[in-house]
Design a protein around this nucleic acid. Structure first.
Length: 361
DNA sequence: AACTTTATCAACCGCCACGAT
DNA sequence: TATCGTGGCGGTTGATAAAGT
């Protein structure tokens, strides 16, 4: 109990990992897979504790990590999931393939929280901040929320109904969709809208609609959608979030949002520049094996390599007991064997067990 | 150009759960 | 049952970069 024993040992390196250390760890895991983390440092020739190695692997070296900025889809999914799950970052990350809990946590704390606050939404409760609160905030920050407009809302159970029709215009909303967006509980986390069938789905159907490792998870053939939160990017202005559903062509916008092609990786910003970080041999290993379905920069467009990796991961379930399950090291001749590693974010799916939380609400 | 403030994110810390003994 | 070793998780810190003055 208490402090991890390996952390008590002296002479262990701390702080940022050097490229050499990364290479050692990467090569070791590539060759032997993940067995017992506490033995990894010794076997890999690293002056680190096992925990540190595990963290480095999971958060940075893992081949299936998606790089770059969060897409709008991911952003909205995080918000929706946070609304239901709270700060259970690991569970949230399990629904975002290629993203780590640490990454999502950082993104939330540094970015999403502020965006929600800007829109007058309490990032903890996901409810509209009270007018009194906003006034108090304005006193403190003066110009943080310069022209906040709050629609009239009425309490309805634990959520709110938007009653101010002036926040809705006629563009782009059919009668049916208007009905949906104007009468639904604005911030109800247990509310889904099925864009294909046009039916409202309670969140309890979520796990049956959204299949793990399904290509439609973020793109084609998507048959689910969170509607409880707006697109932050599109409504990053002063107006309150609930108005998002009412602005022009909301319905089609949200529809296309979920029906869109693959996640649009933001152009550019690959946060890790392999050419500067990794030794050439290591890079070539990574690139050689890119056909195995691993995604380093998330920039491939033709077929989502991450998806391919997931398919491999599913297939691997048929292989019976994997090396890591047996708790012993086995030689991995190819990086393709990563599909037998315990990659939480990929192996965890939307089974009832994982979404048990929905049943408790 | 120099300095300060703010934002970002990798990594650490401490706790908990669980299996083995 | 108690203890130990380990993996996993969430909160927090600190280094660095970017932006502002």
């Amino acid at each position: 109990m208490g402090r991890h024993s390996c952390c008590l040992k002296q002479k262990l390196r701390k702080g940022l990992w050097s490229p050499e250390e990364d290479e050692k760890l990467f090569n070791h895991i590539t060759r032997f897979g993940v067995g017992c983390w506490s033995s990894v440092p010794k076997q890999a020739g690293l002056q680190r504790c096992g925990k540190s190695c595990r963290l480095r692997w999971i958060n940075y070296l893992r081949p299936d990590l998606k790089r770059g900025m969060f897409s709008q889809q991911e952003e909205d999914l995080i918000i929706s999931l946070h609304e239901v799950l709270g700060n259970r970052w690991a569970q949230i990350a399990a629904q975002l393939p290629g993203r780590t809990d640490n990454e999502i946590k950082n993104f939330w704390n540094s970015c999403l929280k502020k965006k929600l606050l800007k829109q007058g939404i309490d990032p903890t409760t996901h409810k509209l901040l009270t007018e009194a609160y906003l006034k108090e905030e304005n006193k403190i920050t003066e110009t943080t929320v310069p022209s906040m407009q709050i629609p009239s809302i009425t309490s309805h159970g634990s959520a709110f109904l938007i009653t101010d029709s002036s926040y809705y215009d006629d563009n782009g909303l059919t009668e049916a969709s208007r009905e949906i967006f104007t009468s639904k509980q604005a911030l109800d986390p247990l509310f889904c809208y099925d864009f294909q069938s046009g039916y409202n789905l309670p969140m309890s159907n979520y796990h049956t609609t959204l299949k793990p490792c399904d290509q439609s998870q973020f793109g084609l053939n998507s048959s689910y959608g969170f509607t409880s939160m707006p697109s932050l990017t599109n409504s990053d202005h002063a107006n309150v979030s609930v108005t998002e559903f009412s602005d022009n062509n909301s319905a089609s916008k949200i529809n296309s949002f979920f029906m869109n092609d693959q996640v649009k990786e933001s152009n550019s910003s690959n946060s890790s520049n392999m050419s500067t970080i990794y030794p050439s041999q290591m890079r070539s290993t990574m690139m050689e094996n890119s056909n195995a379905g691993f995604c380093w920069d998330g920039s491939e467009k033709d077929i989502d390599p991450l998806f391919q990796f997931q398919v491999n991961a599913i297939k691997s379930e048929d292989y019976g007991t994997s090396s890591w399950e047996e708790g012993q090291l086995q030689t991995h001749n190819s990086i393709e064997d990563f599909n037998s590693y315990p990659l939480t974010s990929l192996s965890e799916d939307l089974t009832e067990a994982n979404f048990d939380v929905f049943h408790h609400i």
